[in-house]
């Protein structure tokens, strides 16, 4: 493989990995802090993408669409927590999965009613619609670099929020001893609502910024959800740091699994095997560390 091609694939894998992190960080945060398995998390990614598409259509400007779609996502998160999710904190896993699966069906139906079942596309905003020339024949789109940039900024902000602020301390404290946090005069229910809304917003934001490079289509949430669960399992359930490492790892394995032509004993491994690479990685890591890379030991 040529150096330029390698570099392009490396940038692609980092961009995909960081985007995965944006989505899966919310999934792992909501699990780590509230103990909720939310299988509807992928739907927020889809909702974000459709919001970006429909608002860009209406407003005629991607940035204006983004500025409106983010607060809409926050509101969806807050309302959903209040309406549905808060009743799950004391229920067991089966109720959580059943209810959030029901949400997927509802969101898909609503999407069909509101936006139809066609595949949509969002244009890359003009300001970022350019390429950086790597060689005479190869270049790299600026917009993809911008996606990586946004994801890195968000990851940095998340680190700051969780590790350096009092709200972050409360969030971490609430993940080990909810009752004690309450007894210190802190409204844990409010913290939970904010964390859930944060997770929804991050996933929706990922959908919005990904819309111009991937098409906007029905069921896109479910496709990404499966990969996100792989990320969360590899990284360790509840670990944001683990989600970051696992996302980048999956980005690399998935991207290079598709472009490398691996030969073993003169036999070409079929491209079909490449689509399994992510799951093979998960299986290998779980054999080595059943609790995931940064997971807590559970006996």
């Amino acid at each position: 493989m040529e150096l330029a091609t390698f570099l392009i694939q490396l940038l692609n894998s980092v961009q995909y990995g960081l985007l995965l992190f944006l989505i899966s960080s919310g999934l792992t945060l909501v699990f780590g802090i509230m103990g909720i398995i939310n299988v509807a998390h992928g739907s927020f990614y889809m909702i974000g993408a459709y919001l970006a598409w429909s608002l860009t259509q209406t407003l005629g400007n991607f940035w204006a669409a983004l500025a409106l779609a983010v607060p809409i996502a926050v509101i969806i998160g807050l309302v959903l927590e209040w309406l549905v999710v808060r009743f799950l904190y004391t229920r067991d896993l089966l109720y959580q999965v059943l209810l959030t699966y029901g949400l997927i069906l509802m969101f898909e139906e609503l999407r069909s009613i509101l936006w139809g079942d066609d595949v949509r596309g969002v244009n890359i905003p003009a300001a970022l619609d350019a390429s950086i020339r790597l060689t005479d024949t190869l270049s790299y789109p600026v917009y993809r670099l911008a996606i990586s940039g946004v994801c890195l900024v968000v990851a940095g902000l998340m680190y700051w929020l969780i590790q350096k602020t009092r709200v972050g301390m409360t969030i971490r404290a609430g993940s080990v001893n909810r009752e004690m946090v309450q007894s210190l005069g802190i409204d844990v229910k409010l913290i939970y609502r904010l964390v859930f809304a944060l997770g929804v917003t991050l996933a929706a934001l990922a959908g919005m910024i990904a819309a111009p490079v991937s098409s906007v289509f029905p069921g896109m949430g479910n496709q990404i959800l499966i990969v996100c669960f792989v990320v969360v399992v590899i990284g360790g359930m509840g670990s944001v740091k683990g989600a970051l490492v696992a996302s980048l790892l999956i980005g690399l394995v998935d991207t290079f699994g598709k472009v490398l032509h691996v030969q073993i004993g003169g036999v070409h491994l079929l491209p079909e095997l490449a689509s399994m690479s992510v799951y093979l990685l998960m299986a290998a890591i779980l054999l080595w560390r059943p609790e995931g890379l940064f997971g807590k030991h559970t006996g």
Binding site: R166, M169, T170, V176
Partner: peptide
């Protein structure tokens, strides 16, 4: 009921009011 995943300093300042 200390928070083992927080430092001593964080245990204290998260409660301050």
């Amino acid at each position: 009921g200390i928070f083992p995943n927080l430092t001593v300093r964080e245990n204290l300042i998260m409660a301050a009011r």
